[in-house]
Design a protein around this nucleic acid. Structure first.
Lengths: 348, 348
DNA sequence: CTGAAAGCGCTTACAG
DNA sequence: CTGAAAGCGCTTACAG
């Protein structure tokens, strides 16, 4: 029990057979005699032999694990219910395939090094686009990849919703309710998006929001109709944001956020300031987290299928791993607007 | 760009140096001439060479990843905010150490096989105890391990709170408020606990709850003072539970749950049935998830530091990996009772 | 400073 | 049915 682990060599010696035979005993018993197999398994059992997984995978050129690159540090990534849902979706497919799911924190801020050294058969990352350093790494490593909420292109399989459209729709709803003084709370960019002009999800949504305003002939440069902010995607940051907005001169009548958890943080802050939601100020979210329905007031928000995104991305990766041609590399999942109670007409 | 990946052999040939030299160029350049190093790195760059992580780790006898065995299937495990928090805690430490975090689903129901074949340097699992099959596997694989919410023993490093005590305390509070008809909602056991008499967390808590009742001289066998149920740890299961309890003959005045998410599910169901919480029925939780504070009514619950549990377990594993003696292998973290608004006096 | 060689623990044509 | 041998892509004493 002490000392070194038993290896295939030990079993071979002890059982009086070759390493080949030992290997076959475990992986293809039909290729050796019943007698040999039994002897070998008995010895293996006695010595407590477990084939070394890394040696085995190394030999078989596989890892049996899918990678998910966390878009930010662990604290921010795993604190975000939307991302947790995506991870769950990926995990469900991994489980079905007998794979593990490797969560990859951007190594000391360097996603590139993390991706260079990850022992995975494929990688899913959010917000990827051709041209990024990590994509180059993945290409030279010949690892299949799929992006969620990234930029689709010929070389970049992707899973998305129509973010511009979704943002447009919910802003249209906000305007329909009569709001004309709106705080827009955007999201700070991911850890590995360097290009400051990149076509990110927040930017796509802003386009949609603005389109809705334009359509109404509204002047969104007047510094009152639309005031734009940004924060990280967490309850705490949402709370701080809500507090700031509460004390704004000529307080907006509606807050449009890009995430339910931020919306919930805002609402919490507003309540703590004694401001009633939605009576005094409306708040809308994005994602339709499970919390969105049981918070008070229940959130009016955009339902986007986070779980489904993870599942589809993972399924696509497995197709690529199996060298199958992927029917449609640019997957788009429908969203929908969920009307609950956090949005109402502005006061007076 | 096409064809096979470049290996150390290709670089050696192309650069006119040995594989040894190439290896040194990357890992210990001081051992070769500047000239050799530059030539090698240039060639490596040109051919797009990235050292194969698995080959490297295999050679170095390490994996650079920590394993976390999911206590149930992915859907149930990752849907549970408490577990998500534990994972985040583990992830924070992994990130700090430059490790990845491998989530291991119990392979087609078999945690044993999943643990046999996981490429990790150590494993954290919930509810482990000496004598379990997976522990045997870990021992023969010589992998360090730590359990969270498991059974501490000489061979089993552990992180826990005093579950019995915590349950006792919150039940005492419920009784102090005057409740004498209580529904207790326990948790169904984990995927790999086979021993039906095992000293699991739910059982420990039940002991605590019961102790509080006894102390009050209450008869908890009368089928009214205490009625016990159990469900999986999810909003949906909590909701179903709440619905069931609502329609119980001689409805209890308080529901004591072992998880906030279950409590929130119950409350949601009660509301939907037109039953007011806490006016008509009180509900208490366990965990103090972030949702516990922003749900309506805010939850009276037990605060247990899930994030901290994950961090401590991971730190302990890294000590074990480094072959350090672990100062205190049985870590106990303080809990506290959080009084909010979901518990009040029973009606009339 | 440099490289041939052994080793990590498996798998798998290949020859007998 | 069986086993010697090559191979997976690295690292690292060791000798020169």
């Amino acid at each position: 029990m002490q000392g070194k682990k038993a290896t295939i060599k030990d079993i071979a010696r002890e059982a009086g057979y070759s390493k080949t035979a030992v290997s076959f005993a475990f992986n293809d018993p039909s290729r050796i005699s019943v007698q040999a197999k039994e002897k070998i398994l008995a010895v293996a059992d006695r010595l407590g032999y477990i084939p070394d997984p890394m040696a085995r995978n190394f030999s078989l050129h596989r890892h049996m694990s899918l990678g998910f690159l966390l878009p930010q540090n662990v604290e921010s990534s795993l604190g975000n219910p939307y991302i947790d849902q995506v991870i769950e979706g990926i995990g469900i497919i991994c489980q079905k395939q007998g794979y593990t799911l490797t969560l990859i924190p951007p190594l000391e801020g360097s996603a590139v090094n993390a991706v260079r050294s990850a022992m995975v058969d494929g990688l899913i990352a959010m917000g990827m686009q051709v041209g990024m350093d990590i994509v180059e790494i993945l290409d030279t490593r010949k690892l299949p990849y799929v992006t969620i909420d990234g930029i689709a292109s010929k070389e970049m399989p992707s899973v998305n919703i129509k973010d511009e459209e979704a943002a447009y729709e919910i802003m249209k709803l906000v305007l329909k309710y009569g709001h004309r003084s709106i705080a827009l709370v955007s999201l700070t960019p991911d850890a590995f998006t360097k290009d400051s002009n990149a076509d990110t999800v927040p930017r796509r949504r802003v386009k949609g929001y603005v389109r809705a305003l334009k359509e109404q002939g509204l002047d969104f440069y007047d510094g009152k109709t639309l005031r734009q902010f940004a924060c990280d995607c967490s309850f705490e940051d949402g709370y701080a944001m809500g507090k700031d907005i509460a004390s704004l001169p000529s307080r907006p009548t509606a807050i449009v956020t890009m995430s339910d958890i931020v919306a919930i943080g805002c609402i919490s802050a507003l309540k703590d300031q004694g401001i009633k939601v939605p009576e005094e100020i409306s708040v809308v979210g994005f994602d339709n987290d499970s919390a969105a329905s049981y918070v008070t007031p229940p959130l009016t928000t955009v339902d986007q299928p986070a779980l489904e995104k993870g599942k589809m991305a993972a399924e696509a990766i497995f197709s690529l791993i199996a060298n199958e041609t992927i029917r449609n590399p640019h997957m788009e999942i429908p969203f929908s607007i969920i009307e609950r109670e956090s949005l109402s007409r502005p006061k007076e």
